[in-house]
Design a protein around this nucleic acid. Structure first.
Length: 547
RNA sequence: GCGCCUGUAGCUCAGUAGGACAGAGCAACUGCCUUCUAAGCAGUGGGUCAGGGGUUCGAAUCCCUUCAGGCGCGCCA
């Protein structure tokens, strides 16, 4: 629909001899009385052509050769051109939608470009919390969205299984283990204190018994560390699976060390001249690429920093020939962006190659009061607990009805209390009702095949035409969401579409004695279902047939 | 002190590359189930878009500034 219109306007401008602007803006007017689509292009051109906007608008309209797809074209306000499509055009577009949804629903925006999206990447030192859930929902939806727009998407989870934190996890488990055997082993100051530490210690006890009693941690640290983080990681995988989030690749940080990638990365930067020594440490010259400080990559004690393996990690990403790299991080890591981008530039790639999408913090509330969470004391609500309490679909939908950069207040009580009036159910319910209509149609022996081949012209009520128009704007919403990397636009659209279906359902009966009318309305329902299912699939939200 | 994000209806949030009288859901109040699922529908009220300047034909949207909240400024990860 939009493509057709853009073409028409371009042609008109060509006839007028006006140079076509790079982006012809088409918008869906807020008011339905302003027509189906509008363009402010005449106003934008006013300064260039040096004519009043309304005059230009008039000329554009006069230069449109074929006006049959329009019912009317108006000039409004300061110089908007408002287009109202003819019913005939709307019906033919609706028919296309039902007949060939795969072609109609979306544009080939990605053109098979390769994109890697890295998200969640939680340290395997504890269970996933709500913030990870938000990153997971956002990353999965963005991946699906881009994939639907014919990008080749790879979803990656980066496992921080090297370094101090996992070792500390191992030590925490070791300490609990010793304590369980009655030894007064000092618990590490910064250790992990959650209940899951005991669970791991228990698991070890069950499998290995007390054979590590009285051993020094140094002797058994590899065993405890590996056992602990692997168990954590498998919990994380399970949580993600239950949250319906799938990853294509799991990249291990250890592997980067073991394969020598970290050293290679350092050598590479050294050759390029961005490495130097100072105060007994080795530094990367991040300031040469806009970071405020140079960054240590090998400490005085000879250990690498977290950043060092991240250099290797991003080097590997950049060299894998993706057309686009997207990292989804919690907003608390925003200060980290300049140094990673500095690495990319230092390696000789444009820093635009990497896009970092920040997902803002989630505040967990219960009945309007903040839930105290202290990582230190091991008191925090996990993603699993939230899913168990309010459901995966509801949780995801709440995440996806917000912009990623808005701070999110997640109220457990509200999410639960609203469960019967929650927006996600509203959308799912629309789909369930449509399924129910189709079941009913079968009982009445109404043919539900080839619904595109019906007299769609019978869909002439205001409600029906509004729905048709809404359906036809879906590709535009989709395109906007893809380009902006904003899956939440789909969420809002689905709510609006459902908000048109339910009143319609209430006012009109689809299955009646008039079989031709019944089939026309079934066709409309089918179109709504197609779009709802498409949107829900992108959001990774289930669409139950019955509710 | 510096940097990033946010401030829109009582609450939670949208507002599409500045555009047409500011939107939705919840909550509140009033009605609607012998007819395809009432997790639904119909109706009512509710806003100096944090404050102040500026740019523009036009600003919730861009710039400056003040205030408020969150987050970050390690040889931690």
């Amino acid at each position: 629909m939009k493509k057709d219109l853009v073409k028409i306007i371009e042609d008109a401008l060509k006839t007028l001899g006006i140079e076509t602007p790079p982006h012809i803006e088409i918008e869906i007017p807020q008011k339905e009385s302003f027509g189906d689509m509008a363009t402010p292009v005449a106003m934008a051109l006013s300064a260039i052509v040096k004519k009043p906007p309304r005059k230009i608008a008039e000329e554009i309209i006069n230069s449109i050769k074929d006006k049959t797809v329009f019912e009317k074209i108006d000039i409004a306000g300061p110089g908007f051109i408002n287009f109202t499509f003819s019913k005939k055009y709307l019906y033919s577009e609706l028919k296309n939608l039902i007949q060939d949804k795969s072609r109609f629903l979306r544009y080939d925006i990605g053109k098979d470009k390769r994109v890697q999206i890295e998200f969640v990447s939680a340290n395997p030192t504890g269970p996933l919390h709500l913030g990870h859930g938000r990153g997971a929902a956002t990353g999965a939806a963005l991946s699906n969205l881009l994939e639907a727009a014919s990008y080749k998407v790879e979803r990656e989870f980066y496992i921080n299984d090297a370094g101090k934190q996992v070792k500390l996890l191992g030590l925490s488990v070791f300490a609990r283990y010793q304590q369980m055997l009655g030894i007064e082993y000092p618990f590490p100051e910064e250790g992990y204190r959650g209940g899951y530490i005991e669970e791991i210690a228990n698991a070890i006890m069950k499998e290995e018994g007390g054979k590590y009693l009285q051993k020094g941690f140094d002797e058994v640290s590899d065993f405890f560390t590996d056992y602990s983080y692997k168990m954590m990681l498998s919990d994380i995988r399970k949580d993600l699976t239950d949250f319906n989030i799938i990853f294509d690749t799991w990249q291990s940080e250890r592997e980067l060390y073991n394969k020598g990638d970290v050293e290679k990365a350092i050598d590479d930067l050294k050759t390029k001249g961005f490495i130097y020594e100072k105060d007994g440490a080795i530094w990367f010259k991040a300031t040469s690429f806009g970071d405020d400080k140079d960054r240590v990559i090998i400490k005085q004690d000879g250990e690498y920093t977290y950043f060092t393996s991240d250099i290797a990690y991003h080097r590997q990403k950049v060299e894998k020939k993706y057309d686009e790299l997207i990292d989804i991080w919690g907003a608390d890591h925003h200060g980290y962006i300049p140094r990673v981008k500095a690495v990319i530039e230092a390696l000789g790639y444009p820093k635009e190659k990497l896009k970092v999408l920040l997902v803002q913090m989630v505040t967990l509330l219960r009945g309007g009061k903040p839930v105290q969470m202290s990582k230190r004391a091991g008191e925090f609500i996990t993603l699993r607990e939230v899913i168990d309490e309010v459901g995966a679909d509801t949780t995801k939908f709440i995440f996806l009805t917000r912009r990623p950069d808005s701070h999110l207040e997640f109220d457990l009580e509200a999410a639960k209390a609203q469960s019967s009036e929650n927006p996600v159910f509203y959308v799912q319910y629309a789909n369930a009702r449509i399924n129910s209509i189709f079941t009913h149609a079968k009982e009445k022996d109404i043919n539900t095949d080839n619904l595109y081949d019906t007299n769609l012209g019978l869909l002439s009520s205001n409600e029906e035409l509004r729905i048709v128009r809404k359906l036809l704007t879906y590709p535009m919403i989709f395109e906007g969401a893809v380009n902006a990397h904003e899956p939440h636009r789909i969420t809002f659209y689905l709510q609006e579409l459902s908000g048109m279906f339910h009143p319609y359902y209430n006012k009109y009966r689809v299955i009646t004695e008039e079989s031709e009318m019944s089939r026309a309305r079934l066709a409309l329902c089918e179109a709504i279902r197609i779009v709802l299912l498409d949107g829900l699939e992108i959001l990774d939200v289930n669409a139950p047939e019955k509710m």
